[in-house]
């Protein structure tokens, strides 16, 4: 910087400047290196999806392809990717909306409305979180089959429309809101529903955002559940299910470019959403952190 006060030492100012600058350069260098390290796998995914198979085999970690090719993407042309993407989006959206509504209502009831057995009910809901999902696969299939939900959108959405985790998250959040707010609303003549929708939910925005993110992302990436629900109707596949087909049966030699092209297609919508809603995402995450 320019020297402002000539009397108070030109030299020390300059020295400070240099160390500061050095420190800055150094920290940027480190940050750059770290950023590159974290970005590298992603970049590699992008470029590998554009390489030829022999080239991938020759040098898997080279960043820049020698020959650019769309082979990996062309492998998808026989797949119904557009439809699968629609299915994924539709199912994830429906599940998210359901969770937001039902988890917040249930959470609110458990947090604020005393009723007999309320605690027991809450513990039971929590208890279901302790059961590993994989154990439920076959019972789930049998139930879904009996109600004719196999191979339907309903089967993909309905069982997921509310989760114990969501209820838990919302209940904990509502409990942290001072009761005074509701009492003030009641004095103003609001009934329970009005109180919930007009006073409580708006305050719960951070928790809701966290819930939306977790639910949407979970539903978007889910593989096991759609796998058992969709039996023969491949037009109802979700993206992860459909693209698993690229992996082939037993995986001795993998078509890496096609697999990575497929995972890009799956990841991209989530990535775009993340970039656009980054601010809210961080907000949501910090709130869940706070409420732990």
């Amino acid at each position: 910087m320019a020297s402002i006060s000539p009397t108070i030492a030109e030299t020390p100012a300059q020295e400070v400047d240099w160390t500061a600058r050095l420190r800055l350069i150094l920290s940027y260098a480190i940050l750059f290196l770290l950023a590159f390290t974290f970005l590298y796998p992603f970049l590699l995914t992008v470029t590998t999806s554009l390489k030829t198979l022999p080239e991938i085999n020759e040098n898997p970690v080279a960043l820049i392809p020698e020959t650019w090719t769309l082979e990996g993407y062309l492998a998808m042309q026989n797949l119904n990717v557009g439809r699968w993407m629609f299915n994924s989006a539709f199912v994830a959206l429906a599940i998210t909306v359901g969770n937001v509504l039902f988890a917040s209502m249930a959470g609110y009831a458990l947090a604020r409305i005393p009723f007999p057995g309320g605690n027991l009910l809450f513990l039971t809901i929590l208890g279901t979180m302790m059961i590993p999902g994989i154990v439920l696969l076959i019972p789930m299939f049998i139930i879904l089959k009996q109600v004719n939900f196999i191979d339907t959108y309903m089967g993909l959405i309905f069982p997921k429309v509310t989760t114990a985790f969501g209820v838990f998250l919302m209940k904990q959040f509502f409990e942290s809101i001072p009761k005074d707010l509701e009492e003030a609303a009641r004095i103003d003549g609001a009934n329970r529903l009005q109180m919930f929708f007009r006073v409580i939910l708006p305050i719960a925005r951070p928790a809701l955002i966290a819930l939306i993110i977790f639910t949407f992302q979970g539903a978007w990436n889910d593989f096991m559940f759609p796998l058992i629900v969709i039996s023969v109707r491949q037009e109802l596949y979700t993206l992860p299910l459909g693209l698993a087909v690229l992996r082939g049966g037993l995986g001795e030699s993998l078509q890496w470019n096609a697999i990575l092209a497929g995972s890009l297609v799956t990841t991209l919508p989530m990535a775009v959403i993340f970039i656009f809603f980054q601010r809210y995402f961080l907000e949501g995450i910090s709130y869940t952190g706070l409420k732990g």
Partner: peptide, 21 residues
């Protein structure tokens, strides 16, 4: 066990139109 088939690589082609089974 090794794939009895051969190597899997790619894809499956969906049976064109699904009739409800």
């Amino acid at each position: 066990a090794p794939p009895v088939e051969e190597e899997p690589e790619a894809e499956e082609e969906p049976p064109a139109e699904e009739e409800p089974p």
